[in-house]
């Protein structure tokens, strides 16, 4: 009995701690009138979503965020998979070094490398370019992809490849029949993390994406960026981002094996 109460308390505390700040965001998003002196909004409604839709911000930001993220996943995968294959299946000098170096772009604060990128992009005339933003998102996206996929390659028994080859399978067949099914969970995990990373990336997008590329986080920044804090529209935009974020967590729980999640959250 005592144990049960204890578990219940702990679970409630965790759930409440996570959910409460999010609920307040929802309060703001659906409030039409909320005086600073009162505890709850005195008028509820969809006004802010309408305002954002009519202003064209919401549509544009959703379009940008949700087209950039898949592209980042795609290109990160194209770059990471060959390297991850080598690192995961072959042994060679400097292999550890490669693994460790790939960590660094995740650890260096984006604002630090960002000022260099800002200057380079200015020189190249790439400020405010769509593909420029895809590229900067890949800086943080690739490490997630690489780590997940390399872990997947590593978990494959090398004997399998050999067996397949000795049984007369061609290289392509080996690839398709042996590697693809075994590596795809890793690619899936990597894709989820990379997608989430791109969706949430903010500092670099702010620096090199302005003024045209206003992804959802940048758009939110416009509403909370110091000079003007407008909680209601900022919250309405946040709701649009929070819902896919929660879906991503559920997806991850459902489909991604725990050994890949260790690569998560390095952001």
């Amino acid at each position: 009995m005592k144990r049960k109460t204890w578990i219940f308390l702990m679970s409630t505390l965790i759930i409440f701690g996570v959910v409460f700040p999010i609920i307040v965001i929802f309060f703001w998003a659906f409030s039409e009138r909320w005086y600073g002196t009162s505890l709850l909004p005195s008028k509820w409604g969809l006004k802010w979503f309408k305002v954002l839709l009519e202003g064209g911000d919401l549509g544009k930001s959703i379009y940008l965020s949700f087209t950039i993220a898949p592209l980042v996943v795609l290109f990160s995968a194209l770059i990471s998979i060959p390297a991850a294959y080598v690192v995961g299946t072959k042994s060679f000098k400097g292999k550890r070094l490669v693994e460790n170096l790939v960590l660094i772009p995740l650890i260096v604060p984006p604002i630090a490398s960002g000022i260099g990128l800002l200057s380079m992009y200015t020189n190249w005339g790439m400020i405010g370019s769509y593909w420029g933003v895809v590229l900067v998102h890949m800086i943080g996206g690739i490490p997630y992809m690489f780590r997940s996929v390399a872990a997947a390659f590593e978990s494959i028994d090398p004997a399998l490849e050999e067996a397949s080859r000795t049984l007369g399978a061609t290289r392509l067949q080996t690839m398709l029949k042996v590697y693809v099914p075994l590596v795809s969970p890793g690619v899936l995990a990597g894709s989820i993390f990379t997608f989430a990373w791109s969706l949430n990336e903010f500092v670099l997008t702010l620096l090199v994406g302005l003024p045209n590329i206003t992804t959802l986080p940048v758009q939110i920044f416009h509403y909370v960026g110091g000079y003007y804090i407008a909680p209601a529209p900022a919250s309405a935009l946040s709701v649009v981002l929070i819902i896919p974020s929660i879906l991503i967590v559920l997806l991850m729980e459902r489909f991604v094996k725990i050994e890949y999640t260790a690569g998560a959250g390095l952001k």
Binding site: V24, N200, P217, V249
Partner: peptide, 20 residues
Amino acid sequence: AIYKIPLFIPYLISAFAWWT
């Protein structure tokens, strides 16, 4: 599943939520 949610919420939103 729930305790992992903050991991995937953009920093900006989390910061703003705590501000309010």
